[in-house]
Design a protein around this nucleic acid. Structure first.
Lengths: 254, 254
DNA sequence: CGGGATCTTGAGCAGGTTCAAATGCTGTGG
DNA sequence: CCACAGCATTTGAACCTGCTCAAGATCCCG
């Protein structure tokens, strides 16, 4: 194990990896994106039927496992309990564009509501526990409780905003700006979930990062090296430590 | 007027330009994106309250007029009655990324539902008539008629799919593939609304096209010229005629 | 310990950008 | 109705960022 890793007490630095035997209680699910739906539905501490349904439908995925394939009929909405997932779309000739990395507490599959088929493919980047809400359960509750739809609208809307930012990145930013933006996005998301915003693990490969950011994997490496030379950060394989968030921000914004 | 333009009977080739005095009846609104919402709400021919509300709230915009600004509180959902609009986001240093061109029958502003503020800016590309549904009207009807939310989910979801395609374009396609994809997208959208899919007017400048596709305006020109040399299409200023949709498709897909 | 995957670095190349300039269109005011 | 200013489009030429190809280093897993 590397020095960087040895320095790090596990909690408060990197998200835990899913443990198959761990009890996934409603309380433990508080981090889950789907929890936002539940809280919307029930008063605090009241009837938690939806949450219970969710908790009963949890699944483990290993690195590289497929959560769903593009074109599959939409079975369920997926909430990442712990771990991480990449989603991507494919061109006819097999080129892949990663459209997002999703970490603990985030939701997958809502973009497919309209089509009733998954539009993208999702694959686990590490050992990942996912809670699933079968779509018919969601539908049933939506009939009964209109505010669920309201909440879903918000989540979809949020996704549209995120995608707009990614489009801006892909269309207008150069390689340095892209990587800086990417690192800051991860940093913020980890911070929101009480993990360290400056020291974390990248669960995706350089090649995945490059694909997502629209650049070659070699370029990703080179920019990491350049940032390191400028003392912006330290990398040790997939461990990253950010030393100067402010300077990173000014780079990210162009 | 150029030869190309003179050849074209107006209807069935290019969308009409908005006429300030034209009556915007419910029937005439059939092309409107918002009509999808209404049909969801009422049986055919029955109570058309929502539609009437919409029809009373129409507005004219001239080329370059702002429909709304990023950060403005969300007032209304906008349905383009005729004309066209570009939406875009801005970086801090003023760089712009156009996130979409929207033509007759399409909806604007739904992406902002969550934030309750517009996330992007919208500007008319030509004389454009827009029907507006004030957000509180939409909310009120949504309370009463849950299927409206259902329909809005579908529209949002559709937008996410479209954005995924644009991300793939920006991240993975070269200049020729981008322009071909762009032209085919317009072609399909015009065809869906019974305009000619092979002969139409580009209401946006080369510079706008370049911005949207993540390339320099000069590159757009050069590729247009190249396509013309290969007899794929003819351009005369902003008039385009596509001669070989199939070949264009095979280019677009990579 | 071995082999495959991942990461890093170098060198040369190319697609696309930038800068510059010519041409053509449009619409605005007199 | 015409002239002119300003904008949009087109084309050329030099340059540069990031890509591709290649090879070596390192890590991870069984």
């Amino acid at each position: 194990m590397t020095d960087v890793v040895r320095m790090m007490p596990n909690r408060l630095t990197t998200p835990r990896v899913a443990d198959k035997n761990e009890v996934c209680s409603p309380v433990a699910c508080r981090d889950c994106g789907i929890y936002g739906l539940c809280r919307e539905v029930n008063g605090p501490g009241s009837d938690l039927r939806l949450l219970e349904t969710i908790v009963r439908n949890r699944k483990m995925f290993k690195r590289g496992d497929l959560l769903y394939r593009a074109g599959d009929p939409l079975r369920a909405i997926h909430a990442i309990r712990c771990g991480s997932v990449k989603t991507y779309v494919l061109t006819n000739d097999g080129r892949m564009q990663i459209t997002g990395f999703h970490v603990t507490g985030e939701l997958l599959g809502l973009g497919a509501i309209a089509a009733s088929h998954y539009a993208s493919e999702a694959r686990a980047l590490e050992s990942t526990m996912v809670c699933e809400v079968p779509i018919e359960v969601l539908e049933a509750y939506s009939e009964e409780i209109p505010s669920i739809r309201q909440q879903m609208l918000k989540i979809l809307s949020r996704e549209i905003l995120d995608n707009q930012e990614l489009m801006l990145l892909l269309g207008k930013k150069n390689a340095e700006e892209r990587l800086a933006t990417f690192l800051l996005s991860l940093s913020r998301r980890f911070e929101k979930r009480s993990y360290s915003p400056t020291k974390f693990n990248l669960s995706m490969s350089r090649s995945d990062i490059g694909n997502y950011l629209g650049m070659a994997e070699e370029t990703v490496c080179r920019i990491f090296t350049r940032f390191q030379d400028e003392s912006l950060l330290t990398t040790e394989r997939r461990q990253v430590q950010l030393h100067d968030l402010d300077r990173l921000k000014s780079i990210a914004l162009g």
